[in-house]
């Protein structure tokens, strides 16, 4: 798939340049890459917000191709939910629960069923029921984000796209939101596609990581595979998770070999203990 911005103008630029990839159903995929590398442009194709200039995208049996005229995208959008950056900016209803109902009702769900779903989803995202009938604008930033996410979940999508879902939240809120998506992925088999700058989150929660640079897909693989190519990532101006940064500093200082990447604190502590006791890092 290729996407050309400002086609046939002096500003013509390939935002996506011959990208090919597969995302398995029920998986958790993270897209990483520098700002402007094409991550968001790529995911906007998956629910038909953008149409490719060439190539095609298949979501189940739904196919999006370049020149198709007036394609009805509603069936696609019912299957692929999209949580935009700062989704709380899009809340508009009088109450939190009405806001959550808006999505499913827009897809033809009855008011009674939408309310039922809204209650389920607000419970799922952990918003206490005392807030359900308040104006979404009286809620805190973290609570507003939960309402916005509940609104996408209430449509009952099979795939959910997250564009930097934790940006601007405090560390506690960030962790809660990530745990929520982790749970939805594991328990409800929701397919998750996340655009993120947080390497720690990408490493901890993903089955697959896609690395974008200048509109091209540069790497794809399991977190361990991706982050063991530390130098390649650094050359693209990307970081590695904090746990690896720390271990790099330690192995440098001790004059020891770098081991395989680790992402949790507990694994990191185990590795440090090994480094102190034996010396050679695990391979």
């Amino acid at each position: 798939m290729t996407h050309i911005y400002n086609s046939k103008t002096p500003f013509e630029r390939a935002a996506l340049d011959h990208v090919s990839l597969k995302i398995s159903s029920g998986s958790f995929t993270s897209l990483i890459g520098h700002t402007g590398s094409g991550k968001s442009t790529l995911v906007q194709h998956i629910n038909g917000l953008l149409r490719p200039s060439s190539g095609s995208i298949s979501v189940g049996d739904f196919v999006i191709e370049p020149q198709k005229k007036k394609q009805d995208l509603k069936p696609l959008r019912a299957r692929v939910g999209y949580v935009f950056q700062y989704p709380e900016h899009q809340l508009f209803e009088e109450t939190a629960i009405k806001d959550v109902c808006f999505g499913p009702m827009n897809f033809g769900v009855s008011a009674a069923e939408a309310t039922k779903r809204a209650e389920e989803c607000l419970t799922l995202v952990g918003l206490p029921s005392l807030f359900w009938h308040r104006s979404p604008f009286d809620l805190s930033g973290g609570q507003m984000r939960r309402v916005a996410i509940a609104g996408v979940l209430a449509v009952h999508p099979e795939v959910i796209i997250l564009d930097e879902p934790t940006a601007g939240l405090d560390p506690h809120g960030q962790k809660e939101i990530m745990e929520l998506f982790h749970k939805l992925n594991k328990n409800s088999k929701l397919t998750i596609i996340m655009v993120t700058h947080n390497m720690g989150d990408a490493a901890l929660y993903s089955d697959q990581i896609l690395v974008m640079e200048a509109g091209q897909l540069k790497m794809s693989g399991a977190p361990e595979e991706i982050f063991s190519r530390e130098q390649d990532l650094r050359n693209m101006g990307l970081d590695v998770p904090e746990t690896m940064v720390f271990l790099d500093k330690l192995t440098d200082k001790l004059g020891l070999e770098k081991g395989r990447p680790v992402f949790t604190l507990s694994e990191t502590a185990d590795r440090v203990a090994d480094l102190l006791n034996g010396g050679a890092a695990h391979v």
Binding site: V245, F246, K249, L250, K253, L254, L265, S266, T268, A269, D270, V272, A273, L275, L276
Partner: peptide
């Protein structure tokens, strides 16, 4: 956070390290 986990693993560290550099030096 790491200092605490290391203490639990029998590596006794002082409670002064704040930055990653401090901890690396102490471990060294």
């Amino acid at each position: 956070k790491l200092r605490r986990l290391l203490n639990q693993r029998g590596i006794s560290l002082q409670d002064t390290a704040l930055t990653q550099e401090d901890l690396v030096n102490e471990l060294w």
